[in-house]
Simulated assay, not measured.
Amino acid sequence: MELPEAFVDFLNKNGLDPSIYTAIDSTPRYIRLKPGCELYLENIEAEIKCKLQKVEWLPHFYSLPPHVQIANSKAYREGKLYGIDAASGAAVTALDITPGDHILDLCAAPGAKLCMISDLLGSSGTLTGVDVARHRLAACRTMLQKYALGDRCRLFVADGTTFSLLPILAQLNSKIFSDRESVSEEKLDTYREWTSRRPWKERKKVLVDAECTHDGSIKHIQKFENWGWTTLQRRVLNAERIDNLNVLQLLLLTNGFKLLKVGGYLVYSTCSLTVAQNEDVVEQFLLQNSSAELLDIEAAKYWPCKSGQIQKTLRFDPLTSQTSGLFVAKFTKLCT
């Protein structure tokens, strides 16, 4: 893939190696098998005519060559597996999810991480997914339906920077939930079949996989060959947009932390590799929130990633990790 000069300049200014974008043909794609579906592994391999390679550092994950298609396979249609990059799986793993947890995914679309969280929760705990875009949340709804996970998750079309879920009102029997504090009546989407049967709890764990320029995703950048590099200029390289994104990322992180219970965990991630959207946001957040503390990610000692520019933060990239680019930071709340 031949990168335009403006994008190479952008990478160089941000201290990023343009050679990571030459790894498009060698970076595998990843799938996650739903728990219990390893029994069908040989059948899946026979159908897609490809040997799946187990990802040793991430349970239930497998890699396959990037050209192999899974969408027409019986296993995919039946909801036995779904596509999710291993780096994204690592961000979910960093939450240390256990059955019974109460989890908020503040930027839930398109839904693969939401599915993984639901799988890890099992039949207990609660899960709430939020996204500002109605059509993107509809993609979450479709995924949850397909993988038979929808009865354990509430979905809300809402602004993640202001979302604040009130305790359940008097409609518990009809399974209707409302967020009257931050969502207008005309924008509220309530999906009856995805409402939890359990009452609202303070969030013990929050995932903020924030909107970003997506420059760490090789596959995303590759799309601009078809979309046109002028679109890249507008969506990725525009200085005003990047400034607005930095504000948005800090607001999302701040609100997610506000909704977090004392002693709980929050994971902040982006698929950008720039310092401005990662370490700079973390640094500013810590300056503004004295009750926040960065944590080591215990599982990361087995992960193929690098340390970020702030101690305890992590970075995945195609050359180091054989994954999409991703930044991950984990926080806890010390007091109210």
Rank of each mutant, 00 (worst) to 15 (best):
F177D: 14
A239R: 11
S88G: 05
A6L: 10
G125E: 07
A109L: 00
S178Q: 12
D151M: 08
L106C: 04
D179M: 01
D105T: 03
L3Y: 10
Q288A: 15
R77W: 01
A112G: 13
E185I: 04
D85Y: 01
G100W: 00
K51P: 00
L253M: 11
L58H: 01
G228T: 03
H220K: 12
A112Y: 02
R134K: 14
L3N: 09
G122V: 03
A46I: 03
P318D: 03
K146W: 01
E2S: 11
K312M: 04
V328E: 05
R32G: 01
R134D: 09
G111T: 09
A133E: 12
F316D: 06
A138W: 05
G79C: 02
F163K: 06
F331G: 10
F177K: 10
A75K: 08
S272R: 01
L326R: 03
F177Q: 12
V92P: 02
L3C: 02
A139S: 14
K80F: 14
A170E: 15
N244H: 10
R32L: 00
Y82K: 02
P110M: 09
Q53R: 11
S269V: 06
T274Y: 11
Q249S: 10
I242G: 00
K301M: 04
T98Q: 15
T162P: 03
P28R: 01
G15A: 11
G100I: 10
E78D: 14
S307D: 13
Q171T: 15
N289R: 13
S182N: 06
C271I: 07
W194D: 07
S19Y: 03
E42S: 14
K261H: 09
G216P: 03
T195C: 11
P28V: 03
H214E: 13
E279H: 07
D243C: 09
S26N: 08
L121A: 02
C212P: 09
A112W: 03
T195A: 09
R77S: 11
A292H: 11
R180D: 14
K306M: 11
K113H: 05
K306W: 05
L81C: 04
T231C: 08
Q145M: 11
N72H: 12
F285L: 08
